[in-house]
């Protein structure tokens, strides 16, 4: 199961997008995400789609990789299309536009994880969430929370597989609700125990939620160029 989780996995390449600062890329995901749902006319959709095609080229993501990464979403696209076909056939063009925008949004977020390492992402989120200190949200807590999720989600899948196999070897039938319930409860218990162990381990290594990030980040000339490109795109569309 873990092998199937390929959405936007980081690939080490020497591209313009890879060289951008992770903070800038996160901001772009938000800006482009909003833009992708703000575009309405055919002209805007064409311009935005061409822009996205250029971005994909700049990331050095191959067409094959793009299709492979989108594979988990095919079902959603087909489902949405079927809903339009069944319930509002007269608005099928509108439906296709929505699906296209949704596809663009997925590509935008996929490019972020494709071109940015987890460490860079965590450091960027930590830096960007500094203003949240006003609301007593600690950036360090956020960063550690994401790290722990990144670390433990694959482990959860491995444990799920192990438990499922152990139950299956003793003739469990996963069509029965009782057995599914047992599988879920067993997994939940293991994950909660792991969480408790992790909490102990963090305390024993002096976990301190108040310290500042030690990662140093500085904007480069390519980051400023990218701001200019995005600004031009916004001007063309609006």
């Amino acid at each position: 199961m873990i092998k199937r989780l390929t959405f936007g996995q980081y690939r080490c390449k020497d591209s313009f997008l890879h060289s951008l600062d992770a903070r800038i890329k996160i901001i772009y995901v938000v800006v482009l995400g909003i833009l992708s749902f703000g575009i309405k006319s055919k002209f805007e959709i064409v311009v935005f789609s061409l822009f996205m095609a250029c971005i994909v080229l700049l990331s050095k993501m191959s067409f094959k990789e793009l299709i492979k990464n989108l594979r988990p979403f095919y079902f959603v696209f087909i489902f949405l299309l079927l809903m339009y076909l069944i319930f509002s056939r007269d608005q099928i063009i509108l439906g296709l536009r929505y699906i296209w925008r949704f596809l663009l949004l997925i590509i935008i977020s996929m490019l972020l994880t494709y071109t940015t390492t987890i460490q860079e992402l965590i450091a960027a989120i930590e830096k960007l969430s500094k203003p949240l200190k006003v609301f007593k949200i600690k950036p360090r807590n956020m960063a550690v929370m994401i790290s722990v999720a990144v670390r433990f989600i694959p482990l959860m899948f491995i444990r799920f597989e192990r438990t499922r196999e152990a139950m299956a070897s003793r003739l469990a039938d996963f069509r029965k609700i009782r057995h599914i319930k047992l599988l879920v409860l067993n997994l939940l218990e293991k994950m909660l125990r792991s969480a408790s162990n992790l909490s102990d381990a963090m305390h024993s290594r002096l976990y301190n939620e108040d310290i500042e990030s030690r990662k140093f980040m500085k904007l480069k000339s390519c980051d400023y160029w990218s701001v200019a490109i995005i600004a031009i795109l916004i001007l063309i569309i609006y």
Binding site: I118, Q119, V144, S147, V148, V150, R151, L155, S194, N197, L198, D200, A201, M202, S204, R205, L206, Y207, N208, I211, R214
Partner: peptide, 28 residues
């Protein structure tokens, strides 16, 4: 220092060198 029985649960960060640095970061 404490090396736990379930050492798999002891690792906080996904990357080795980052995890080793975890305690040192906390020591500021």
């Amino acid at each position: 220092g404490f090396v736990f029985q379930n050492f798999e649960d002891q690792l906080v960060y996904p990357v080795v060198e980052e995890d080793i640095a975890f305690g040192l970061e906390n020591m500021e």
